[in-house]
Design a binder for these strands. Structure first.
Lengths: 339, 339
DNA sequence: ATCGGCCGCCAAAACGTTTTGGTCCATCCG
DNA sequence: CGGATGGACCAAAACGTTTTGGCGGCCGAT
């Protein structure tokens, strides 16, 4: 069915060796230009494509990268990292073998051994949100990088969002719009983003010389209903803020409902900035939500690229986590304060 | 590094052949029980795992399935199909090679050839929403199935949601709650779901002996703002419906905003049912949205299973599309009509 | 004429399996 | 005692590549 190297060799009248040399452009081999020409033509005619299994077996390079995601289910924006990874892999002639563990840790080990059985060139270990992880030791068997995750030991290259910097640019945007009373609807999870975004909020306030009010800073469960409660807690006060920075878009969605329940209008009465840019919310909501976009696509690309260079030139760490900026996505939820 | 068959052979004192026979349990081979025992022990000690590249090369079965998704980006619920596929694949000792074309059709061909280069056992061609597709001819090179998609020629097995049946159960749920004036916020896209869900709506009305009002049936762009406009158009009327069935959750989200803008309350004044169960909306919204869940996970599973059986026993179609029911997910957006 | 060197090409081993077709040695039967 | 039977194992080919280490032939120099 599919043409093999032998087919090309027989049809062109040269040996398999020579055909291989020509098709791979092996340097330092002297082969007559005519021969090259012929072989290439025949290969073309037969639509020859090297069998990557055979190639991988011989070269010890399968052209395949294992992508282990702790979940592609839960957080809808996380597949952008896969997209970025895939594009970067395609650029280099590689492909992704995908395993999603969906929070079932026993699948991690199994996934990794399945990767190793298939002789992947390297492994991407991707979390769905910025986390400190302890990957199974089997991950050491091959070059690996961490995405949206890092270990304490810094034994793998890793990429994470710059939580505090991004929070600062969010708050700075509100300041720029003229707000002087800015609240923070924070979360209660024990994850790096929690402290990071809170710190960024405070720093931005301090930099702008704005007042800081403990009552404007409230922590709740990081989803819609939590956002609703948090927003009510802050907005029901007499000295209520004119702007809210929210831990994520889900909380921001809750804040929208709270604002409306109070008979107020988003942007006009209360400006809101979210985090994550989950388009289904940020574009679905009325008015559109200004938010910080997580650089997932870029992190995916970065992951594969550093992984590939690590494969070509192994090295031993430790590796400082690389911090990625989150760009501000302006929509319509930020206005100037009234009066 | 990794133990090979030869290592096991040498360490156990038997030939590679015998080791292979034992480890694969090839039927009809007479091998002394002691020998089996020894070989298995040694294989265990060395943590031997067969190299799938070599195995695939020899057996012409790579243990790998190509998954071509037209987009894992756009629709956030679509990765459940990947999850289902992956789980079914894992059950059978297979893995997924993933390519997402993200609406770039030139990637389809490239993806498929990359699959073929890697000798995938079969290919899943998955759309993000129920569509009629024309896959590139190269797809014929291997067994393939279509998910959330079908061709006119029915040349591949395919799975799609049962649009009209699901719409009927949605409307029936509203009828059961006591509603007699039920509106439909429809869409304007040229896709199978458009006609299907509309037809289901009308059928359900007819079955229940309820009045049908052209004015209660409005079509708009199938996202949040479209839903908002559609809901306003219907609810601003004096004979406004007490319940709305929406083409999808995004439109339902818009309907929520419309209801609130009118000073009404979802469930109390206007019951709402959506479609898709995009959790970020259906769980994020206040009150929680009752909606139809697309059976993506199940379709993914089905896809791999039928693909695998197709690989083992090739056959030639034509294949009627298999229709999957969408289960109703009850939350809090449906109440009984007032008074 | 002979030798060295270069040019153009190729045989064969290797990667790690599976599978075909044996071989060797007891034992059993007549 | 010869041949057949069967039990237990193995050598080697094959899958489709890459890569090492050649090997002939021609040319120029001696």
């Amino acid at each position: 069915m599919k043409a093999t190297l032998r087919d090309v060799a027989e049809r062109s009248g040269f040996s398999i060796t020579t055909v291989s040399h020509v098709l791979n452009d092996v340097p330092g081999k002297r082969i007559a230009p005519d021969t090259r020409e012929t072989i290439r033509r025949v290969a073309d005619e037969l639509a020859y494509r090297p069998n990557q299994l055979a190639q991988g077996l011989r070269r010890q390079r399968s052209g395949t990268i294992g992508f282990l995601a702790d979940s592609i289910l839960t957080t809808p924006h996380a597949h952008k990292v896969i997209s970025g990874a895939q594009d970067a892999a395609a650029e280099a002639g590689s492909m992704l073998l995908l395993v999603s563990t969906d929070g079932r840790p026993e699948l991690e080990e199994r996934g990794i051994t399945a990767f190793l059985d298939r002789q992947v060139d390297g492994i991407v270990y991707a979390a769905t949100y910025h986390r400190i992880v302890t990957p199974p030791p089997s991950l050491r068997a091959r070059p690996a990088v961490l995405l949206d995750a890092r270990t304490d030991a810094a034994e793998y290259p890793s990429a994470v969002p710059d939580e505090v910097g991004s929070a600062r640019t969010a708050v700075a945007e509100l300041v720029r719009a003229g707000h002087r009373r800015i609240g923070y609807l924070g979360n209660v999870d024990d994850i790096p983003a929690t402290a990071g975004r809170l710190a960024g909020y405070r720093q931005a306030l301090a930099e702008a010389g704005l007042p800081w009010q403990p009552a404007w800073e409230v922590a709740e469960a990081s989803e819609s209903t939590g956002g609703y409660r948090a927003a009510r807690a802050v907005l029901d006060r007499p000295d209520r803020p004119t702007a809210l920075f929210c831990f994520n878009d889900r909380m921001a969605l809750g804040a929208y409902f709270a604002v409306q329940d109070l008979g107020l209008a988003v942007a006009l009465d209360v400006s809101i900035i979210g985090f994550d840019d989950q388009e289904i919310i940020s574009e679905g909501v009325h008015p559109g939500l200004t938010t910080m976009r997580l650089p997932h696509y870029e992190m995916g690309q970065w992951g594969i690229r550093t992984l590939l260079s690590l494969i070509d030139a192994p090295s031993d760490g430790p590796y400082d986590p690389v911090h990625f900026d989150c760009p501000l996505v302006r929509r319509a939820s930020v206005g100037s304060p009234r009066g």
